[in-house]
Amino acid sequence: MQLGNDEVREAAMEARLVLTDLELERAVKFINNFLSMLDRFKELDLKDVESFRFAEPARCPLREDEVLPFPNVEEMLAESEHRSGALIRVPRIMGE
């Protein structure tokens, strides 16, 4: 499969990335080379192959339902450039 400029730009927008024309050109070339490499998968019969997801552990460990407050909340919030008192302020949300 090969992708055109518009498809790559659309994927970029989906990832909230705006590319310059030069970046787009490079990205399209890269992605198409990359997809060509992945086209090798078609040589394999993968129909009955089970996906590899986790080598171990076989089951997700579970935590007991206990409250343990994080001690450095203030330090964490101080890292936001958008902090407004106790809240985080963001500009207008368009759509939806």
Binding site: R63, E66, V67, L68, P69, F70, V73, A86, L87, I88
Partner: peptide
Amino acid sequence: KTNSKIFCSCSTDCESAAPNTNICP
């Protein structure tokens, strides 16, 4: 209904807690 959140040990009490206090990494 649980005491703590689904993936961390922060309290689920949103009623009485001040904003952005029951949070962690």
